[in-house]
Amino acid sequence: MPMRTLRELPFPVRARGAFLVHRLALRDPGLETRLRDGLDAAEKQLLAHGESAEDPRIVQLTGHLAAAGGKRLRPLLVLLAAEFGDPWRDGVVQAAVITELVHLSSLYHDDVMDSAGTRHGVPSVNSHWGERLAVLAGDLLLAKAAQLASGLGADAAALNADVAGRLVAGQLDELVGPAPGEDPVDHYYRVISGKTAALLGMSLRIGAQQAGASEEVVHTLGAYGEQLGLAFQIADDLLDITAPTSAMGKERGKDLAVGVASLPVLLARADTTRRGAELRELLSRETAMEPAERRRALDLFRHSPAWDQSTARMRERLRAAGSILTDLPAVPARQALDSLCDFVADQTG
C-alpha cells in the first residue's frame, strides 16, 4: 500500500454521509444544507487530526479508516441533536469529531478481536500493519477524543469517559461470554448496549449539550439513541447474513464464520425443531466455518425462524425509539430522527 497523506485520497469530503443526509432531510432544504455544512466541517477537522502526528507512517496508520469512508452516522446524530438548541454554537462540530474518533477507535479494536481482513472496502489495519500497531492506533484515536472532549468542558469530558468505559466493558462482556446460568440473549443485549448503543446515545447527548438544549431534551435524545443503537446492531447482525460484500465493505457472513454470537445466531441455536437441526450443527462447531459451510449456513438462515424473530426484535426497538421522540419539540430534526428509524428498518428489508 503506497504512502500518501489523507488529503491525497480520491474522494470528496462532501461524499461522506451525503445520501443519508438527503434522505433524512428530504422535506427541509434548510436542514439538509446545515447538516451537509456541518458534516463537511467535521470531516475537515477529522482529517486534520489524523494528520497531526509528526511521523507520516503514524498519519497513515491512524487515518486509514477515516480516509476509507463510512456513513458518518455518529457525527450526523450530533448535528441533528444540535438542532434542538443553537446548531451554530461553538463546540458542536468538535463534538461531532469526538464521536467519530471514538467510533473509529472501536473499529480498530473490533477488527483485531475478529481477525477481520477488510473494513469499509479496504484492508483492515490489523491485516495490513499487524495487530499490535492496530491496537495502539485505536488507543491513540481514543486518546485524541478524550483530549478534544476535555476542551469542551467537564460535562463533555465526563460523558466521553463514561462511554469509553462502556465500550470497553461491552467488549469484555463479549469475550468472557454469559455467566453460568445467564440467558445468552440477555447477555447479548448487555454487550451491544455497551459496544453500540452507548456511542449513539452519547452522540445525541453531546450534540444537544453543546447546542445549549435543555437537560430534559438532552436526556430524551440520549434515551432515543440507546434504543436506536440496539436496533442498529440487530440490523447489522442481519446484514452480515444477507448484504453483499460490496454493500457492507466487509466479507458477507464474516461474523457468522468466526462464531460471533449475534442475535440471529443465538435464536437459531435455540431452535430445537428438526428443520433447524442442520443450522444448529453448523453453528455449534468450535472452529471457523469453511467457505462452503458458510454459504450453506447463510442459505439456511433465510428460511430459519431466527430471521423473523430477530427482525421482530429490531422493529420493537425502533418502535420504542420512535415513541420517545414524541416528547421532543416538533422541529424538523425530530422528523429526521423518526425517518432514521425507517432507514434502519429498510436496510434489512
Rank of each mutant, 00 (worst) to 15 (best):
P244I: 07
V13R: 13
E286I: 04
P291Q: 07
A48N: 09
R4S: 14
L47C: 07
R313D: 09
A257Q: 15
D271N: 11
V331R: 00
M1Q: 12
M314I: 05
T326R: 14
S106Q: 02
E226A: 11
D37R: 15
G17N: 05
G259C: 06
P329F: 02
M248L: 15
V97Y: 03
L328M: 08
V13F: 12
G63I: 12
T272P: 00
L104W: 00
R7Y: 14
V125T: 12
A41W: 05
N126F: 08
A25N: 04
E293P: 04
G349F: 06
L79Y: 02
S52Y: 01
A277I: 07
N160F: 13
E32W: 07
Y108P: 06
R7N: 11
D183A: 02
A96H: 03
E43Q: 14
L76R: 09
L31A: 08
L172F: 14
G91P: 01
G222R: 00
D28T: 11
R4L: 13
S124Y: 00
A231I: 02
S304N: 13
E316N: 08
R294D: 06
R166W: 04
A312K: 09
L65T: 09
R74L: 01
K254Q: 15
L266F: 06
A321V: 09
A146L: 11
K195C: 06
L26Q: 13
L256Q: 03
A158M: 12
P332M: 00
L148R: 11
G85V: 05
Q60H: 13
L325V: 03
T348Q: 03
P244D: 06
D346K: 10
A25C: 06
A333G: 11
V168C: 13
A96N: 04
D162Q: 15
L79K: 05
G138N: 08
L140S: 10
E54T: 14
A312L: 04
L200E: 10
A312Q: 13
G253N: 07
P184E: 09
E290A: 15
T326N: 11
L256A: 07
A41G: 00
V59N: 14
L6P: 14
L300H: 04
E182I: 03
V168A: 12
P75N: 05
S339A: 14
F11D: 06
L279N: 03
E174A: 02
R89D: 01
I234K: 04
A345K: 05
R7G: 01
G121H: 07
Y108I: 00
L340R: 03
E290M: 13
P87T: 08
R274D: 15
H103W: 05
L279Q: 06
L104G: 08
S214H: 01
G50A: 11
P180C: 07
G229F: 01
A336N: 01
H64N: 09
